[in-house]
Design a protein around this nucleic acid. Structure first.
Length: 210
DNA sequence: ACATTAAGTGATT
DNA sequence: AATCACTTAATGT
């Protein structure tokens, strides 16, 4: 059970009836920045709907190599989670909180019923599938077609968009792991970008100038 | 003051 | 573009 206030912000997504159902069966969860919400191999029991903050979705291979896939923002849910719910399998990805985040957790058991009963729920699910799939395509394009310096630019742009801030608090190492590269290389590229006047650098901070 | 962590650099593959 | 080895600088205890 959660407060009506929490669901009110989602009015643009769902009809009243569904909203009150969501309100009845869900839990509100606040997760601090940096916390791992779901890790590879974990069972997914809830469908998350984001109220505020942002979640970073990364893929990890056996040897612990990481790549950033996409961010989940307000009013969205994670398609991989949906995927897991449908086939009742474990998570293929890791979800990390990018900022302090609050989420509505809907138990997966309602998934099927609502798909049948509520048009707005169907739309929500399908729309999210579509959006996430597109994001994944972007990620693949970036990986296969772009050189590292261009990927880095995209990365910084995305990150500052999600943070809603042109000054990022990140270490070069963080970036390197997100892009599956090495710290030294990132440092050098950033230095280069700084010389070109694209960014200015400080310890733990990158300011993007446009 | 000392240890730890972040970032810069030259050389090598 | 990655890795190594090392330096310098900033921060925490």
């Amino acid at each position: 059970m959660i407060t009506a206030d929490s669901t009110k912000i989602l009015k643009f997504l769902f009809e009243e009836e569904l909203l009150s159902e969501i309100q009845k069966v869900s839990q509100l969860q606040k997760v601090p920045k940096g916390e791992i919400m779901i890790d590879v191999g974990e069972q997914v029991k809830f469908i998350p709907i984001l109220l505020e903050g942002a979640i970073k979705i990364v893929r990890e291979d056996e040897s612990g190599e990481e790549v950033l896939l996409y961010y989940v923002e307000f009013g969205n849910t994670c398609a991989m989670t949906l995927n897991c719910c449908l086939e009742n399998s474990t998570s293929e990805i890791r979800a990390i909180c990018e900022k302090d985040t609050s989420i509505i957790m809907v138990p997966v058991s309602f998934m099927d019923k609502w798909l049948v009963n509520y048009r707005s729920w169907r739309n929500f699910i399908f729309q999210n599938y579509q959006d996430r799939l597109n994001e994944m395509l972007k990620a693949i394009d970036s990986l296969t077609f772009l050189k590292l310096d261009e990927r880095l630019r995209n990365y910084l742009k995305e990150k500052s968009k999600v943070a809603d801030d042109s000054t990022l608090e990140v270490t070069h190492l963080d970036i390197a792991t997100d892009l599956n590269s090495s710290r030294v290389v990132i440092s050098r590229l950033l230095k280069q970008m700084e010389n070109e006047g694209e960014v200015s650098l400080g310890r733990n901070t990158i300011k993007i100038k446009y």
